[in-house]
Design a protein around this nucleic acid. Structure first.
Length: 580
DNA sequence: TTTAGGG
DNA sequence: CCCTAAA
């Protein structure tokens, strides 16, 4: 569908096929379930799949799925708007006109599904690119050329030189490693990665890529399909000019089975992966490193570049309380693929940085972003939740926040009023922020044990993933709390006023107060631009609240001398009387 | 643990 | 928002 517009896109994800999208797919696939999504227009999209025919069966509804993915993400845009690959999708568009939306929107990350699903005619070899290299990239111009692979691969018979050639054909780059064993391992690994050897038609056995005899599921249609595709691939492999010819004597050929662009998912664990490092494991299936693995290594290699696989993986433990903090994550989509060096199997190889988009279950908590005040929808949707997802808790909390608010923390109708407005602008501001830079990234599940904590900002900065914009009601509660207990009694305020909002810690309150303070005094001299001049992309705090903050600050002598000087210039009492 | 302040 | 030093 969209492939016409970007035929030159060269997949380079072959290094690390296990993308987040895989993970997504994994969810879908492994559960062997059908997902029903109800769209706005009450259309129902159904996605069903099974492992072996993912790509093929997917086609008819891929658009919808794509939409679904967006759809799903869309709901996260408010508070975690970065989450979406394409933030421009409007809910209103999730209507009958799927195609339109699909066409007009690009889905950089959703490429996995997008590309292979959409392009049934397209090149199945194209690994969905982590980023779509626009022009010159380290590996932009390369893609694995398996077209010469037919039959069985017997790496053992190859000379080092041949292995080099094969290596290049497989990975698209040269290697200087002379170790045959290593080369063989890497090649077979690469092959397995790109062809889904392990889970489909091929198995790797003693450095041989063999075709399973007993596999037939995907032979009939798939064969044709893939053959065509392979051919097409060859033809389009314009950029692969330096693909090393393996020579006529080569026996390396592969009768293509590419499970629909690597659709099959492997829930590879580092363990498995490492296991493969050992030679001669008979029929053990090859696992490819998960993105998780890569990320972790990528994290750890910044400090210990000699880190053994085992150690890096293990040390980064997946313990519930472990907070993985990726050092380099997320390259803006569409930027040249960034790679890093990593020692795999004993040599340094390039591995693309991966962006942690979102992993794990499909998001089911898209309403978290809803401000506390928005009760109705929230409640409705809440029903859809399992209730055990941590996110759900937050929603409950949010709702409770709201209740609390209504219960009396907010005694100033005026504030409340402007609050409503602000809610809106707050969210839209957030949305805008996230889509403006052209890089759209996703928030991971905020509460998932392991998730991304930072997200690139349009300005290049990294914003923390955990950032949950303060809603006005929260701010109001904070203010009230301060007025009641005094600034500094954060734990008290937390305990009382924010008892139900567990996601705000006392430290958060303190920080927020600090900000409020700053804001209130900073904006006062102007005294007119007020909240509308939200140049700072953050929540525009309504003037009334800011005034209150100032007042409280004064009362509690929190005002720094210089600020005092500033503020003394304006007549607070007038304003104050107006609101209180 | 809670506060305060720096990053 | 996160981290840490202090209390």
């Amino acid at each position: 569908m969209t492939h016409d517009s970007e035929p030159e896109v060269v997949g380079d994800g072959i290094y690390i096929p296990a993308t987040d999208d895989d993970m997504k797919s994994e969810d879908l696939i492994d559960h062997k379930s059908s997902l029903h999504f109800v769209m706005n227009n009450s259309q129902t999209a159904v996605y069903s799949s099974n492992d072996d025919t993912f790509g093929q069966e997917f086609t008819p509804i891929d658009c919808e799925l794509e939409e679904l993915l967006k759809f799903e993400d869309h709901f996260t845009q408010g508070e975690r708007s970065d989450a979406v690959v394409d933030t421009t999708v409007d809910l209103g568009k999730l209507n009958p006109k799927f195609e339109e939306v699909t066409r007009s929107e690009s889905t950089p990350v959703g490429g996995q599904i997008d590309q292979s699903g959409d392009r049934k005619e397209a090149d199945p070899l194209l690994e969905p690119a982590e980023s779509e290299p626009s022009t010159s990239t380290v590996c932009a111009s390369w893609k694995p050329d398996f077209s010469m692979l037919k039959g069985e691969i017997c790496l053992d018979n190859l000379s080092v030189r041949e292995l080099h050639a094969t290596f290049k054909a497989t990975f698209g780059r040269e290697t200087s490693v002379k170790d045959k064993q290593w080369l063989k391992r890497r090649i077979s690994m690469g092959l397995s990665n790109s062809c889904d050897v392990s889970s489909t038609t091929f198995i790797i056995e003693n450095n041989k890529v063999k075709k399973k005899d007993n596999v037939e599921d995907c032979n009939s249609e798939d064969k044709n399909h893939n053959k065509n595709s392979v051919t097409g691939h060859e033809g389009r492999n314009v950029t692969g000019d330096n693909n090393t010819s393996l020579g006529d004597s080569q026996t390396i050929q592969m009768e293509g089975h590419y499970s629909g662009g690597n659709k099959t998912v492997q829930s590879a664990t580092p363990k498995h992966y490492i296991a493969f490092e050992d030679d001669n494991q008979g029929n053990k299936r090859v696992r490819k490193p998960t993105r998780r693995y890569i990320e972790e290594v990528s994290e750890s290699d910044s400090r210990e570049n000699s880190g053994r696989l085992v150690s890096s993986v293990k040390s980064s433990g997946n313990g519930p309380r472990t907070r993985v903090r990726p050092v380099h994550n997320i390259q803006p989509i569409r930027k040249p693929l960034a790679t890093r060096q990593d020692s795999l199997g004993g040599s340094w190889v390039e591995i693309p940085y991966v962006s942690r988009i979102r992993r794990g279950r499909p998001r089911e908590n898209f309403l978290t972003l809803m401000p506390c005040e928005m009760g109705t929808t929230e409640r409705l949707v809440k029903k859809a939740h399992d209730g055990h997802d941590p996110q759900s808790d937050n929603e409950i909390e949010n709702e409770e926040c709201k209740v609390t608010t209504a219960a009396g923390w907010l005694q100033h109708p005026l504030i409340k009023e402007s609050g409503e407005n602000e809610q809106y602008s707050e969210q839209s501001a957030d949305l805008n922020n996230n889509s403006d830079g052209g890089n759209v990234n996703s928030y991971a599940d905020i509460d998932s044990d392991d998730n991304i904590l930072t997200v690139p900002t349009a300005k290049g900065g990294m914003r923390r993933k955990h950032h949950r914009p303060w809603t006005l009601s929260e701010v109001a509660m904070l203010v009230e709390g301060v007025s009641k207990y005094g600034a500094g009694r954060w734990s008290e305020i937390k305990r009382i006023a924010f008892a139900t909002c567990s996601h705000r810690t006392s430290v958060d309150l303190k920080d927020k107060w600090r900000n409020l303070l700053r804001a209130s005094f900073a904006q006062l001299p102007a005294e007119k631009g007020v909240q509308n001049s939200k140049k700072h992309s953050s929540i525009p705090i309504p003037a009334p609240i800011l005034l209150r903050v100032r007042e409280l600050a004064e009362t509690q002598s929190q005002v720094s001398p210089d600020l005092k000087a500033v503020k003394s210039g304006s007549n607070i009492n007038d304003i104050r009387s107006g609101f209180l």
